[in-house]
């Protein structure tokens, strides 16, 4: 029953993805072109890269609203450090560490100080945004960046852009983590029944902390890649990014309460949103419609999830009732 539910959700998602592909292709054949598909994939790789860690985090029943700010802050740090003369490679790594530190702060606030994840990460979200502005006094860092700054974001390894290489690598790592590692399995256990996990000897605090730190680090990674692709450090970037990530994760079948979800589902979810956005753009529909569309998609995704669960719950209830009737 359970398996069927998850599969059903994935099936529905794939169906939606195919549907919008077909519709947009009919409306504008350019949609299906290799160039456009690659463009969509690159555009969405940043969301997917950071959403991998966030998926695990949300499966464990947590949430992180600071992702967007972290993406921005890491990008700014990368630009600032590169401009200051640091080798681009080193600055790249240091910027990821900045993201990791934001994750660490979240972990301390949530796990140590026991502040609700929503409030704690809302706090770091604003702090991160403010810090990004402070790096350059609110200006876009454009001048004085070394050429190497834009390299990773715009060059290719053979025919494959580095961004895609990074995407594939991150996804591969997280698929392994999800299936084979302590983090993957225990996040399900913690999200499903925290007491049971604790009584089974799992160090729930450590797992949750690690997940926050990972979420921060990979948001940093996504931010650095994004800055490199744009060739600038922009303090206005990443507003609403956390929203894209959360929508993709939820659309991919991760329950807000935790305990279930999958990275594969998240990827499909991200592609649906990305595809929708791109298709609308090709049709010259104004970009701001995307933000409305995302709002609707989020609410619909939650409803779809609840609906499936409700139906199953009702069925389980009926089974229970039947059993007790047999007994009486």
């Amino acid at each position: 029953m359970k398996n069927r539910r998850v599969d059903l959700q994935k099936l529905v998602l794939v169906g939606i993805l195919l549907f919008i592909t077909v519709v947009f292709t009919i409306l504008n054949p350019r949609f299906i072109s290799g160039f456009n598909l690659m463009y969509v994939l690159i555009q969405n790789s940043f969301v997917i890269i950071s959403a991998c860690a966030v998926t695990l985090l949300m499966i464990s029943g947590q949430i992180d609203l600071s992702i967007g700010s972290t993406v921005c802050l890491a990008g700014m740090a990368h630009a600032w450090l590169s401009r200051a003369g640091l080798p681009v490679g080193l600055s790249f790594l240091l910027a990821i560490v900045v993201g990791l530190l934001v994750g660490l702060i979240n972990a301390v606030l949530v796990v140590r100080l026991k502040i609700t994840p929503f409030i704690a990460t809302l706090g770091t979200m604003y702090m991160g945004r403010g810090l990004s502005y402070l790096v350059s006094g609110g200006l876009v860092i454009r001048e004085g960046l070394p050429d190497a700054f834009s390299y990773v974001g715009n060059e290719s390894l053979g025919p494959v852009p580095y961004t895609i290489v990074a995407l594939v690598a991150v996804v591969a790592v997280f698929l392994v983590l999800e299936r084979r590692s302590v983090l993957g399995k225990y996040s399900v256990a913690i999200g499903g029944n925290r007491t049971a996990a604790m009584l089974s000897g799992i160090d729930t605090d450590r797992i949750v902390s690690t997940l926050y730190i990972l979420a921060g680090a990979f948001a940093g990674f996504a931010g650095v890649l994004m800055a490199s692709r744009l060739g600038v450090g922009d303090p206005n970037i990443g507003i609403g990014f956390e929203f894209d990530v959360i929508v993709a994760v939820i659309l991919g079948g991760t329950s807000l309460a935790g305990g279930e979800g999958s990275i594969l589902g998240m990827i499909i979810g991200a592609l649906i949103i990305g595809g929708l956005g791109n298709g609308l753009k090709l049709l010259n529909v104004f970009t701001f419609f995307q933000s409305i569309m995302k709002g609707f998609v989020l609410v619909l995704a939650v409803l779809l999830d609840q609906n499936l669960k409700l139906r199953l719950g009702a069925r389980a209830g009926a089974r229970r009732a039947e059993r007790s009737r047999e007994r009486a």
């Binding site: 590692s181 302590v182 399995k185 399900v188 499903g192 049971a196 089974s200 000897g201 305990g259 279930e260």
Partner: peptide, 24 residues
Amino acid sequence: NVVNQLTVEQNLVLGKEKVRLGFF
């Protein structure tokens, strides 16, 4: 005190897995 989302086997070994470098 069982985790509904995991399989029977996963529940049985939960917390008792052999772990090396964070991997099972």
